[in-house]
Nucleic acid binder design. Structure first.
Length: 489
RNA sequence: GGUGCCGUGCCCAAGUGGCCUAAGGGGUCGGUCUGCAAAACCGAUAUUCAGCGGUUCGAAUCCGCUCGGCACCUCCA
């Protein structure tokens, strides 16, 4: 089973190819994280979950993984921009928003949204990266790289900053498919900078002594350019050449294109051997945007009663490489399926008694199919289908003996490691939510009253009791063995 | 204007040359169980893959055109 090949689409070669590692069995992986100027939305999380699924698949194959996922806590913002009501700067908007009023400065704002991001990350059951570096912790290295790129002739200084000279790097455009010629022809209102040798050149360092976040460099006060942080942090933790780099499709150009240029110009070695990009998410058939009122965040959906795991489940209902439509219907479909896994977990944990293992072989086969699907360019829908088939086998069997139960538990644990849609097995049956307290004594009393009514075949009264409790959110269930249990509806 | 992606049943969504007389989920309909429900389980639900041409012994899968949707095209992830 460990002989499987992990095939993954590579944006650079534009083909599905085996994910290879420089060191056998050890994946060194860098995934682009968010800029913490606001709450990450579920579209952001779709690409983070792709990274998480790559790691889960690798771990399921028995690989060792070193996963680095950055947090960008440097924004492009100047005091002038803040004062300008027409400004487009995201940090500025965040500071001026209702939520932004609580912050004294951008540092606090960045810290706040970083915490929120980590919480959402946990809620959606993503694994923890081995390292979560922050851009502001690596400014010194970024300055050193800028100096080295200048000395190697790839970068030059102007009055406004340090720029990377695109024409010096022959491979510029190999990821995005943009030729330098096309980039120049692009009919777009670009801010013209007469000092740049070529309008396609991009900033490594910006000189700005008014910036809300600034550092001192050989070029005076300023802040690092947009792309340099990832090049620097990937190299710091993973070496000159990494196995895989991922991000959202919007990262492909210019961000990743520029990373490649900087890193490869610096080291003379390939930056990443494999690139993967997650397609955009739509919400209820529309582009997600704050102006459209469909800007979904994890915490927003949870506040509306969504189960975080159901959000995750819904987000991986389509393959990562195709645009995906997140719908309210899809979310409730996912919640329904989630319940099926939770029932299977309850059954597996309740197993006891003598007997032969009835399901072990079949479940092992299904898990193998699910892993195979994930190894085929992260085919989550097929993997989920196989996992659901296994859950059905378990629930169909009903009462499991101890050895069958062990097989069931093993299956569910492996599915959880691979897909993360079940949650920790011990706590899975009870979704964590703050619900109003209930008067359990009263409910038990009503159950007894209904039992008495049923005993004299007063079905009307029995149904009334059940309906009244249901209206309060309490669901009564008549079990096959005659007992009655209640749960949250 | 350039570059790339997509269009599969009522809804979501796999499959990308023959095992497709198209997975899986939701929904709907029928059944088992139940006093009736709920849950679970069983069964049914696309001769067809946006449209039109073409290539091929064979196409949802390749090519062309048309229609529709999406993303990126610079210093703002």
């Amino acid at each position: 089973m460990s002989e499987k090949q992990f095939r993954l689409y590579d944006s650079l070669s534009r083909s599905v190819k085996p994910l290879t590692t420089l060191e056998p069995g050890h994946l060194r992986f860098y995934s682009c994280g968010p800029t913490v100027y606001s709450y990450a939305h579920i579209g952001n999380f779709r690409s983070f979950i792709t990274a998480d699924l790559v790691v889960r698949t690798a771990l399921s194959l028995g690989w060792k993984v070193t996963w680095v996922s950055n947090i960008t806590d440097v924004g492009h913002l100047t005091e002038d921009d803040v004062a300008d009501a027409q400004g487009e700067d995201k940090m500025e908007k965040a500071l001026r928003s209702k939520e932004g009023e609580q912050f004294h400065n951008v540092w606090e704002l960045a810290e706040f949204y970083e915490d929120a991001y980590r919480e959402d990350w946990k809620q959606l059951n993503l694994l923890e990266p081995d390292v979560r570096p922050k851009a502001t912790q690596h400014v010194r290295e970024q300055i050193l790289v800028a100096e080295e790129l200048i000395s190697k002739g790839y970068a030059y200084e102007t009055d406004s900053g340090i720029y990377f000279s695109v024409e010096k790097f022959a491979g510029y455009g190999k990821l995005s498919g943009n030729t330098q010629e096309n980039l120049r022809k692009a009919v777009r209102d670009v801010v013209l900078d007469e000092e740049k040798k070529d309008q396609s050149d991009f900033a490594i360092w910006k000189k700005d002594d008014k910036h809300l976040m600034q550092w001192f460099s050989p070029y005076g006060w300023g802040f690092p350019g947009w792309h340099i942080e990832c090049s620097v942090m990937a190299r710091a933790y993973l070496g000159d050449t990494i196995d895989l780099h991922s991000g959202g499709e919007d990262n492909k150009f210019p961000h990743h294109e520029c990373e490649i240029a900087q890193s490869e110009a610096l080291t003379g070695k390939p930056f990443s051997n494999h690139w993967t990009h997650t397609a955009f998410l739509q919400v209820n058939g529309q582009k997600m945007a704050k102006s459209a009122g469909n800007f979904y965040t994890v915490r927003g959906l949870v506040a509306d009663g969504a189960d975080p795991l159901a959000i995750r489940f819904a987000l991986i209902g389509g393959v990562y490489r195709k645009p995906f439509n997140f719908t309210d219907q899809g979310l409730s479909d996912a919640a329904t399926n989630l319940e099926r896994f939770r029932r299977a977990v309850e059954i597996a944990l309740a197993a006891s008694g003598e007997g032969e293992d009835k399901l072990g072989e079949e479940l092992a086969g299904l898990f193998d199919d699910a892993l195979e699907a994930m190894c085929s360019d992260l085919n989550t829908p097929v993997a989920i289908a196989k996992a659901l088939e296994g859950a059905r086998l378990i629930t169909r069997e009903g009462n499991l003996n101890a050895s069958t139960g062990l097989s069931a538990k093993t299956f569910l644990e492996r599915v959880e490691l691979l897909l993360g849609i079940i949650g920790p097995l011990e706590t899975a049956p009870e979704p964590v939510q703050s619900l109003p307290a209930v008067d359990e004594i009263r409910i038990l009393g009503q159950i007894e009253a209904r039992k008495a009514a049923k005993a004299v075949k007063n079905w009307g009264q029995a149904d009334d009791i059940r309906n009244v409790l249901l209206a309060e959110g309490i669901l009564l269930t008549d079990n096959p063995d005659g007992t009655v249990t209640w749960s949250r509806a």
